[in-house]
């Protein structure tokens, strides 16, 4: 029964996104054309990947606010490596980005696991530290497109079957995440410890360790996105992806991921990301200043949280009623 409601919620969200696209295309017909749609998808790929990773963290009743800073730091590191030694193949840089991101995520997870510090405090702290390190590393300077190698910039733009590599990558990661969430023990453990940590202990699951893994995953994906971000926008500086962590949380919450843990799925997170992506891409099309973006995501988070709370509350009440009629 609930499954169908959750599914319905995703249908509802999909319907809203479609309606939005159609409404916008009335104003500006070019919006609906395939190249533009693909561009929107391409623009949203990074958010989609990160939203999925953030979802795992939120499922375990944690939150990762350091993803934006993680992107900036890994992005800066790979950009500097590239400008210093352009002959280094891109694949190596991608691996470095993944590894560095993993380490940064592991630091968050370590504090949450070993010292049981509230994740919000840890990631608020590391958010500042990581971003500060970007400044220290580059001494406050920018790395611009002309300092980056051809292949570094070209990699995400490589065209495969008419679709950019970044999009393919995003889809691949999302597919991997789906498999993880659905078909791996670790994925199910994310749900289990968020649902009932006490019961999880009975099943022999170490709650702290699973949280640690969620942070590692989130960090790793953020690292990957760090490379994509820098090469796609062809610039690396201190403030890139500032506030992006909020977008990832927003995407999750819009997609029905419960901030109290255990509820949510990849489909929802992706639709949440697409929702924000379409809004962001549509704003210039319908002549609204991009400065609206921030408050729109804020408002949408609040609406989504209220909506989630409402639907969660309802299920609570019906259980009570059932209990009563039996007794």
């Amino acid at each position: 029964m609930l499954n169908s409601i959750l599914k319905k919620r995703e249908y509802l969200l999909a319907a809203i996104i479609l309606t939005m696209i159609i409404a916008i295309s009335f104003r500006s017909p070019s919006f609906l054309q395939l190249p533009n749609m693909l561009a929107t998808l391409n623009d949203t790929s990074i958010l989609m990947m990160l939203a999925c990773a953030q979802m795992f963290v939120i499922l375990t009743r944690c939150i990762d606010l350091s993803v934006g800073a993680n992107i900036a730091l890994t992005g800066m590191v790979v950009a500097m490596l590239n400008s210093a030694s352009p002959e280094l193949p891109v694949v190596v840089l991608v691996v470095i980005a993944l590894g560095l991101g993993l380490i940064l995520g592991a630091i968050n997870g370590f504090f949450v696991w070993k010292f049981d510090i509230p994740p919000i405090v840890v990631t608020l702290g590391t958010m500042a530290i990581y971003r500060g390190l970007v400044f220290v590393l580059a001494d406050g300077s920018w790395i611009n497109a002309h300092q980056m190698s051809e292949s570094f910039l070209g990699f995400p733009r490589a065209n495969i079957f008419g679709v950019q590599l970044l999009t393919w990558c995003g889809l691949l990661v999302v597919a991997g995440m789906y498999a993880l969430s659905r078909y791996s023990r670790l994925g199910r453990q994310f749900y289990a410890i968020g649902d009932n940590p006490n019961a999880a202990v009975y099943m022999g699951i170490s709650v702290g360790k699973v949280k640690f893994k969620a942070f590692c995953l989130s960090g790793m994906i953020a690292g990957l996105c760090g490379y994509f971000w820098v090469s796609r926008y062809a610039v690396a500086y201190v403030d890139i992806a500032a506030g992006f962590e909020l977008q990832t949380v927003a995407a999750c919450v819009i997609g029905g991921v419960s901030i109290a843990g255990a509820i949510g799925n990849i489909g929802g997170a992706i639709l949440g990301a697409l929702f924000l992506g379409v809004v962001n891409n549509a704003l210039p099309v319908i002549d609204i200043s991009p400065f609206w973006q921030m408050s729109i995501s804020g408002t949408v988070i609040i609406l989504a949280v209220v909506f989630n709370a409402q639907s969660e509350r309802k299920t609570g009440r019906t259980i009570l009623k059932l209990k009563g009629t039996e007794a």
Binding site: R188, Y191, A192, D195, N196, N198, A199, A200, A262, I263
Partner: peptide, 10 residues
């Protein structure tokens, strides 16, 4: 001591 959000099989 079970998991409310998971399926019966799980």
């Amino acid at each position: 001591v079970l998991f409310d959000e998971l399926s019966v099989a799980e």
